[in-house]
Design a protein around this nucleic acid. Structure first.
Lengths: 218, 218
DNA sequence: AGTGTTGGAATGAATATTCATTCCGAGACG
DNA sequence: CGTCTCGGAATGAATATTCATTCCAACACT
């Protein structure tokens, strides 16, 4: 009995009042709704960082967000959809923060400093978000689109690196290796600070940037 | 004639028959017991790497290890005790592989190469174990002793780094930052290869070693 | 040696708990 | 007063852990 088919119509979207972009000031109701969605995302992000995806219970997320457990399912189809929404949103924020207005014509030294410092700015201002992205890198419950978001950023940076190598301003070798080395070092810097309960200071970021530049320059 | 000085009197430990090694032919029994413990550790390590701690069900571990679910509780008090046993065991293996017979009197360049290449050797020969250690770094279910094992290794390397800085052969700065940077880069190299389904070749390790040396040398 | 006894390792179905998801009555809003 | 959002108890599946039972190798005693 009870065929697994969902008798209820699929309300596809969480049925947010679908606010026309025509209500500029009076956002009372919509604001509340929107705030709930944000509260759920924020609470889930924090808990996923603390205990991991499988270690976090949905009702816990609801409690921390100050909403009922059922409310979460008004905004997200499932726990997996929730974690994917967080991943995509943060990854795109990160990607935009690093790549928007990228100085494509600057020299390699400048380009590297730009990328590094923008990553540092994002990571310092959004420590939990950055750790979340780190922690869920390649997790089994990420869907194809979430992976695509990641891949898009990777492709862009790969092109930048390859171009710099062609100009002989970076060491020759597999671009993926160089990028993995840089990103790994970046994460290592954060972790070494977080392990002591601090977030890296600007001076730390600048110091590490110089170190890693010397690692990859030709 | 087989001094059976082993009456029934071992209530606390899993009570491996522990018979005097005087019955070469009958080693069967003890072998079986010991193998079960190993089988459980191996199966759990693999599954924890694949699905994470919370994502892995204890009966799954039992199936993979080829034992009954209850048997796991003859060897480990709980799922957490099991993950801690794996962590401690692998961390100590890693620590020994890197630090045993450390060339304390070699110059800094040699010392760095030694540490890096020994880490590479361990990581390449024990990919799942290394990923396990990475994945469970600072996990909430690790107990105090597991953390202590980690700390012990860290303290030793910190001393080496500090000494090298005093000789002005490494860049000045917080040793933790330098170490985090190096370890992070190391992990980044592994990940960049694993993402493509390969393990780093010797040439990759050597290349990365040279890069990172240039990052930290004074 | 042959036979009976026994301690305790091994098992896996049973239990109690926890979890993701659903459901529906109660309000808020217009 | 109809419509729509919330909350949180209800539900059923899944999970960690237990425990009554089976099984076997090593004595004990002939």
């Amino acid at each position: 009995m009870a065929p697994p088919s969902n008798p209820r119509s699929r309300p596809s979207q969480p049925a947010i009042p679908a606010g026309r972009a025509s209500q500029p000031a009076i956002a009372g109701a919509r604001r509340v709704v929107s705030d709930k969605r944000e509260a759920i995302l924020d609470a889930a992000l924090a808990l996923f960082v603390e205990r991991g995806f499988w270690g976090t219970a949905v009702p816990e997320i609801a409690d921390r967000a100050g909403v009922g457990a059922g409310t979460i399912y008004r905004y997200f189809d499932s726990k997996e959809a929730l974690v994917n929404a967080i991943y995509r949103g943060q990854k795109m924020r990160f990607s935009a923060g690093v790549l928007d207005d990228f100085p494509a014509s600057a020299n390699t030294r400048e380009q590297f400093r730009t990328i590094w410092m923008r990553m540092a700015r994002f990571a310092s201002a959004n420590v939990p978000a950055f750790i979340f992205l780190e922690l869920h890198h390649h997790a089994s419950y990420l869907d194809a689109e979430s992976r695509a978001v990641e891949q898009r950023m990777l492709d862009i940076i790969t092109a930048v690196v390859t171009a710099a190598q062609a100009r002989r301003e970076l060491k020759a070798g597999d671009p993926r290796l160089l990028m993995g080395l840089v990103l790994g070092a970046f994460i290592g810097v954060i972790r070494s600070c977080l392990d002591v309960g601090q977030t890296p200071a600007d001076a730390d970021w600048a110091f590490a940037e110089q170190c890693i530049w010397e690692a990859i320059r030709s």
